[in-house]
Amino acid sequence: MDPAGKEGGHESTGVDYRLTPIDAVSLGALESRKQENKPRSGLFQQDEKVAYQYRIGVGDLVRITVWDHPELTNPAGNTTGQLQGQVVLPDGTFYFPFLNKVQAAGRTTDDIRVEMTRNLEKFIRSPQVDVYIQPNGFRSQKIYISGEVEEPGFFPITDVPLRLSDAIAQAGGLSKEADLSGVTLQRDRQTLVLDAYRLLYEGDLSQNILLQDGDVLNIPDRRLRKVFLMGEVVRPSSFVMPVGKLTLAEILSDVGGINQNTANAQQVYVIRQSAESPKGSPTLNIYHLDSTSPTSVLYADQFEMFPRDVVYVDPVRLVRINRLLGTILPSLQVLPAVRSNIRVLEGE
Rank of each mutant, 00 (worst) to 15 (best):
P3H: 00
P3Y: 02
K6P: 15
E7S: 15
E7G: 15
G8A: 13
G8S: 12
G9S: 04
E11F: 14
T13N: 10
V15N: 10
R18L: 11
L19V: 09
T20W: 03
D23M: 11
A29S: 12
L30E: 15
E31W: 13
E36N: 14
N37G: 13
P39Q: 03
Q45A: 15
Q45T: 08
D47V: 06
K49T: 13
K49M: 11
V50M: 12
V50E: 11
G57E: 04
V58I: 06
H69Q: 09
P70R: 04
L72R: 03
P75H: 12
T80D: 08
T80M: 01
T93E: 01
F98W: 02
K101L: 09
Q103E: 04
A104L: 01
D111N: 10
I112W: 05
I112A: 04
R113M: 00
V114S: 03
V114T: 05
E115Q: 03
M116A: 00
R125M: 08
R125I: 13
S126L: 11
D130Q: 11
V131P: 00
Y132H: 10
N136L: 09
G137A: 06
G137L: 06
F138I: 03
F138E: 02
S140N: 05
Q141S: 06
K142E: 12
I143V: 05
I145T: 00
I145N: 04
G147H: 03
E148A: 13
V149L: 07
F154H: 11
F155R: 00
I157W: 06
I157A: 08
T158L: 06
D159C: 02
V160D: 02
L162F: 06
S165H: 08
I168Q: 06
A169D: 03
K176E: 09
K176Q: 12
E177T: 07
S181P: 14
S181H: 07
V183N: 01
V183E: 01
V183T: 01
T184H: 06
D188Y: 12
D188H: 12
L194I: 04
L194E: 04
A196G: 01
R198M: 04
L199E: 03
I209W: 07
L210G: 03
N218M: 07
I219G: 07
P220Y: 11
D221Q: 04
R223M: 12
M230I: 13
V240F: 08
V240W: 11
M241T: 14
G244S: 01
D254W: 06
D254C: 09
V255T: 02
Q260I: 00
T262D: 02
A265F: 12
A265R: 05
Q266N: 10
Q266T: 05
V268W: 06
V268S: 04
Q273L: 13
K279N: 14
G280N: 05
S281G: 08
L284V: 03
N285L: 08
I286L: 07
Y287Q: 08
Y287S: 06
H288W: 15
D290V: 07
T292H: 04
S293K: 07
S293D: 07
Q302Y: 04
Q302W: 00
F303S: 04
F303T: 00
F306D: 13
F306Q: 11
V311C: 08
V311W: 10
V313I: 01
P315H: 07
L318S: 15
R320V: 01
I321T: 14
T327A: 14
L329I: 05
Q333S: 10
V334E: 12
V338F: 00
S340T: 13
E346K: 14
